[in-house]
Amino acid sequence: APGQAQAGKVKLKIAQTVFPAPSAHMDSVKRIADKVTKATDGRITFKVYGPELADWAELNEMVMRGDIDIMLSPLSPSYDPRWNALYAPYIVTTYKEAKDAFGPDGFMNPMLKEWADDTNMIWLGAWLQGFTGVSLSERPAATVEEAKGIKIRTTPIAAYECCWSKLGFTPSLIPYSEVPTAISTGVVDGQAGGGPFQTYSCCRDLNKYFMFYRDSVEVWAYAMNKDAWNKLDAKDRELIAKVVAEEAQARIAGAEKEDMEYMKKLTDYGLTVVDLADHPKKLAMAKQRGRSCWKKLDEIVGKVWMDKIRKSVNMPIE
């Protein structure tokens, strides 16, 4: 928790625990810390943490409790099932649509703010991680027919499992740390749920194909512990909100650039990369199948919320 002892001095802890430096993520949290410290002439100082601290799910818990003040992190649905809505397949398929949904004025924002508030956090902005796909070793697969019989590791989240089986694959559940072993020994053929950057980092030597299904846009949060937020005075709150909003805005372009850059890197490394956006019919088919999984989310997230999203993306409401 921030100590506000001498002359309004504030010490804050900020963390990002998925990608270590050098990474866009660590750069972003460091920039936030630097900008705020500079703007307050050193009155507000930060301790910046990377992956050495904890895994992202635990980081969520630490921010809720106030052990860490600000995080840039994926959201854990362990405390509020509504975060599962972020896992809904195919809410959007292009970067422009992603901006309209999750950007500072996006239609998702009011919901995200409300949910964060209910879990003792202040929503400061969304970080677009980029779109995800599947990496494979045996053969490429962009349609249901091609995917038949291919076993892939998926994140153990109902919506993802549903989506990948609708897309024709056989989802398999394996702990994340055992994925590389499982791929190299053939327990599974590949892994779903990673974008170009994650695939390049984890599996470029293990897989031969990267199918950019764009099944979901990965959304992370910039969020702050509510008690720490309330202890700040109004001017400091405004400053932090402004600095983070700038970061979130800049990342929208950053996500697209990073996806494209790492797809090229994967190609250069010798993988066959297929972007479903280049095959509109296949993408449309995948989108239709993927969205059929939203029904599952109605019970978990709440139909009211899912209907709001449906309305915003012009889907019929039953």
Binding site: P20, S177, P180, T181, Y200, S201, D205
Partner: peptide, 19 residues
Amino acid sequence: PPSVSMILFALITYQSIPG
């Protein structure tokens, strides 16, 4: 191999796991 700590090292430093 396999080694859990080498998997972690590879994931953190973006190296190849089999490497």
